[in-house]
Amino acid sequence: MRLRRSMLYVPGNAPAMLRDAHIYGPDSVMFDLEDSVSPREKDAARHLVFRALKDYDYAGVERVVRVNGLDTPYGLEDIQAVVAGGVDAVRLPKTDCPEDLLAVERAVEAAERRFGRPSGSVKLIAAIESARGILSAREIAACSPRLVAIAIGAEDFVTDLHTTRSPEGVELLAARSLLVMAARAAGIMAIDTVFTGVDDEEGFLREARLAKQLGFDGKSVIHPSQVALIRFVYEPSPEEIAKARRVVEAAADAEAKGSGVVSLDGKMIDKPIVERALRVLALAGEASE
């Protein structure tokens, strides 16, 4: 079960940062070719990210690249470079409708053929950053078998709503909940937006706890210090871990006996409870099978 508790953004035009992003322990590293790279440097950043993907070992950490949209002069060539480089997932910004994502899927598919990568090996992540996109979240989340997660980009989203971000995030509540629901309906992950206050540890923890409570699987982060904080937020308590172990054992017992009914302490355990217990153990870093 791949975890995506933290997805660490790295600007694509920063050679030293590209090399070492994974040492801080994120679940995914996200090399950015989009908003953090100026138009004059798009080509140079593309080369840096291509070489980083090809030449550096990221110790099993998922490598994601946020490409420019296909509606820009850069997007198609970004996709060539990163698929050729060996990227694990392509993240599309500003996904407003399923067709946006399907167009990327076609480009990725063609690139896989061109560069001899197994078909379907490159996954997709869609960032939704507009009202239109959020209202289409359900369709977007379900439209491609390559799609592993949808994310919300709060800055552009609140601008689209004609408002601003507040510490409590009330303006994002509906969007966040819709996003999570859309992800669950499609059986994929939901990733929360970045928190830009790098020095505001309390603020970050508050927002991360909110996201977790809403059902998000993880959060995009912009600084290594946030990686450890996310891990802390998502870490199950010893009691939760102990309980989860017992549930999983009970499920294994039932399976061994050929019984369809899992019971623990005299109570029946439904399938969702077992699945939740498996997720807890995954978050605790314990192998589930």
Binding site: P15, R19, D43, A44, R46, H47, L48, F50, R51, A52, K54, D55, Y56
Partner: peptide
């Protein structure tokens, strides 16, 4: 700069 960076910068400059 490490090799990867030199390769990338050279390829970008040559392309330009």
């Amino acid at each position: 700069a490490l090799d990867a960076t030199i390769r990338a910068r050279l390829a970008a400059a040559a392309g330009r």
